[in-house]
Design a protein around this nucleic acid. Structure first.
Length: 752
DNA sequence: TGCCCGGGTGTTTTT
DNA sequence: CACCCGGGCA
């Protein structure tokens, strides 16, 4: 197959561009993935060794799909040799290979968010701090933010600004917690998600020979969804690409929706600065959606101030106008949407997998589930509690994890008394205290109590010995036995299987089935295992923490209505999309309304939601909704006002032919359009924010003290260029010298 | 040590 | 409303 076949002119130019730095700004539905896959195929066909290609994606699923598509073009053998995956999985792999340099064993455990929070919780307890103030979520956010800005625990404690921030928020001990958190994880031979990126940075910075090795290896680097990379990821790419500068980044600033995770538009600006001779490609033709959808989406995104200019257009038909559904309650919203799907799937004979319901928060799924179930429509919820986060799954995997890494304290605590074996909390707490005092792993304490002054009575001692000795047995086999055989044996002999099969409640049966499913998954994983090529449980564990639900889609889920958050829908497309819960304080979220940039991110999120639709988009909002257990009144989302009304049908509170009773159905025609005062209010706010923005830009001078959302306090040392492209060089206490384009950077003037 | 009940509390989004 | 945690009791 010709790798240029079926591409338009702009796509061809990007695909066959020479090496060197290049950036592809790709509008929604413009064939971004196509360009990326074809470019990789193009490189291989032109003699680039697949082993020299590094392709970083946002999800494992995207990586797998891209690999398949490339395999179809250049052959599966070549495709298999490309290093393709998420940042986290690729660099976990490299860290395991280079583990000696960072002082970790190669079999380190990757802690997921639950594990990390649990570690923090025990630290707060050990330090006797108030757990109402030091909440694990808040702590993890702070630590995660620090790591993503490459601030180590020592730097964190020494940074005056950070300390001042923590003091003023009433949490001066976060630095000490960060220190303990790193110590404890190290003792457990464990890394959290952020460590994978942080330590990769350290590795590449401290060991030039390692950096050199991977620079030589990854001669061609491609990054998907570049708008959603964070600072730590940016630095990794930058250093790896520094030698050959064959770097190709693909993204769309209008679809940047992960700033809460540290993603920053700054990375796109940095790209221009880092590679001044870069080539820019813009993909602006949308192949996915109807004119109505594309133009409605354009009318929304235009309102944002922070964006790179582009004109997304389509040659597709106009299509149907966007429908707006109004309901009296969240339950009625569920019924209305389910009913609409029911009718449509009948009348135009579209299968259920062509329908998606997209919402802002996971908690909204309930009313849609109920309504779909009542109509007997098959559906699948993505996200929420992932398969791998279920208690029973985590329990069994904890046995595997502990067997692979005896130092893993979180796993040990989880299963030392599950199923019950008479080792209680008091005993465990005592052992943990000894581990802390001696700065040694919990496992070592259990193994040699007398060495670390761990006093237990002889009965408990025997129980502990039983436990450690059978774990040691698994430990000796985890890298040498067939994965399925050992996992089955562990599930049986620990009593987990029996324990669960005794529980005949509906939930208990589901739990049992989940365990079976996990075991089946492991069987599938190790089906090609043989004497020469043994596939072990250790192999399975390597990045089980990095797997998500989307990674193991099952055959029977193929024809179902999809329910998911908009974040989870990124990169996907459906013929019929329902964007629901369009109410103020829900979408846009209450928490986003204080800052202009957060609100713009919500708007981008809405843009992403709308542009998932190929044929028909439907928007929905409810007038009343249950939140925190009581009924509250809701106002329609400002986003409904912001769409150019010429792309909308009128509001209806009734489906056309209704067999569900939607009583109280005064079809409030254009209710939200007919509220000019609200419109005015919104634009006033926009104006006001504009003013402050201009003020900053115009009045800023050298020597001014400013504050940046992410970098904190800093001093302006240089100003270049004329408004609106004024660029400031600012020295930040926390982040060092930065160049910022004032129209993008949110600088706040503190003192001049 | 284990289990059950009641109160208090909290919601964005995820690798 | 749903979950988690802690207290009280067996």
């Amino acid at each position: 197959m010709n790798v240029l076949e079926g591409l338009n002119k702009a796509q061809i130019q990007a695909v066959q561009s020479d090496g060197g730095p290049m950036m592809v700004i790709a509008g929604a539905g413009s064939g971004k993935t196509k360009v990326l896959t074809h470019r990789i195929a193009f490189l291989i066909e032109n003699g680039v060794d697949p082993f020299n290609i590094l392709a970083l994606t946002f999800t494992n699923k995207a990586a797998k799909e891209m690999k398949d598509r490339i395999g179809a073009m250049v052959g599966p053998g070549d495709a298999k040799n490309i290093w393709m995956g998420t940042f986290h999985s690729i660099f976990a792999r490299i860290l395991r290979m280079e583990h000696e340099r960072i002082g970790y064993p190669s079999n380190f455990t990757i802690y997921d968010t639950q594990d990390s929070k649990s570690v923090l919780k025990s630290i707060v307890k050990e330090m006797s701090l108030d757990d109402k103030i030091y909440k694990p979520g808040i702590l993890l956010n702070r630590i995660s933010g620090a790591k993503n800005s490459l601030i180590s625990e020592t730097e964190y404690k020494n940074n005056v600004d950070i300390q001042a921030t923590d003091l003023s928020s009433g949490r001066p001990k976060i630095g000490d917690i960060y220190v303990k958190y790193q110590q404890k994880n190290f003792r457990s031979s464990a890394m959290d998600f952020d460590d994978l990126l942080f330590k990769t940075n350290i590795l590449l910075k401290q060991y030039p020979e390692v950096l050199y090795k991977y620079q030589e290896k990854f001669k061609f680097i491609l990054v998907d969804e570049y708008q959603d990379t964070n600072h730590a990821q940016y630095l990794i790419i930058k250093s790896l690409a520094a030698r050959f500068e064959n770097i190709c980044v693909v993204g769309d600033d209008a679809q940047s929706i992960y700033s809460f995770r540290g993603a920053n538009i700054q990375n796109i600006l940095n790209f221009r600065r880092d590679y001044p001779d870069y080539k820019l490609f813009k993909l602006e033709q949308n192949y996915r959606s109807t004119k109505n959808i594309v133009e409605a989406a354009n009318s929304i995104i235009r309102i944002n101030k922070e964006q790179i200019k582009k004109e997304v257009w389509t040659a597709n038909n106009s299509g149907e106008k966007i429908n707006v559904l109004k309901s009296q309650s969240d339950n009625e919203e569920g019924k209305l949407v389910a009913n609409d799907i029911f009718e449509k799937s009948n009348s135009i004979n579209d299968t259920f997998n062509n329908f998606a319901i997209l919402y802002r928060t996971n908690a909204q799924s309930r009313s849609f589930e109920e309504a779909l179930r009542k109509l007997n429509l098959p559906y699948k919820i993505y996200g929420g509690l992932s398969f791998y986060q279920r208690k029973e799954i985590k329990d069994l995997i904890a046995y595997f994890r502990l067997s692979a890494n005896l130092n893993d304290e979180e796993s040990l605590k989880r299963i030392i008394n599950y199923p019950k074996r008479g080792i209680g909390q008091t005993t465990i707490n005592k052992a943990i205290a000894c581990a802390n005092n001696n700065n040694i792993s919990l496992w070592s304490v259990l193994l040699n109590p007398e060495l670390y002054n761990f006093e237990v009575n002889s009965g408990t001692r025997i129980k502990i010995n039983n436990f450690t000795s059978f774990i040691q047995n698994y430990n000796s086999r985890i890298f040498t036995s067939n994965a399925y055989e050992l996992s089955l044996e562990i599930a049986k002999s620990t009593g987990i299987l029996k324990d669960l099969s005794n529980d005949r409640t509906p939930e208990g049966i589901v739990r049992y089935e989940n365990i079976q499913e996990l075991l089946n998954g492991i069987q599938e994983f190790s089906k090609n295992s043989s004497e020469e090529n043994l596939i072990t449980l250790g192999d399975f564990l390597v990045d089980v923490a990095l797997l998500t639900d989307a990674d193991n889609e099952k055959e029977e889920d193929k024809n179902k209505v999809s329910l998911m958050t908009i974040h989870a829908a990124k990169g996907l497309e459906f013929k019929h999309v329902y964007v629901v819960g369009l109410e103020e304080d829900l979408f846009p979220s209450m928490l986003s309304k204080n800052s202009r940039s957060d609100l713009e991110e919500e708007r981008r999120l809405f843009y992403v939601a709308l542009t998932r639709a190929k044929v028909k988009a439907t928007l929905s909002f409810a007038v009343n909704r249950f939140r925190w257990g009581n009924l509250i009144q809701c106002e329609p989302s400002r986003f409904l006002d912001e769409i150019d009304p010429s792309y909308l049908k009128n509001v209806s509170s009734k489906p056309e032919s209704s067999f569900i009773h939607s009583n109280h159905g005064s079809p409030l025609k254009n209710k939200f359009f007919s509220k000019p005062h609200r419109l005015k209010k919104v634009s006033k706010i926009v104006e006001k924010l504009d003013d402050t923005n201009h003020q900053n830009t115009n009045e800023l001078k050298i020597g001014d003290e400013v504050k940046h959302e992410r970098f904190g306090k800093g001093k302006v040392i240089e100003l270049n260029g004329d408004f609106p492209n004024t660029k400031a060089t600012v020295f930040f206490a926390s982040a060092g010298q930065k160049q910022l384009l004032l129209k993008f950077a949110k600088l706040q003037l503190i003192k001049n």
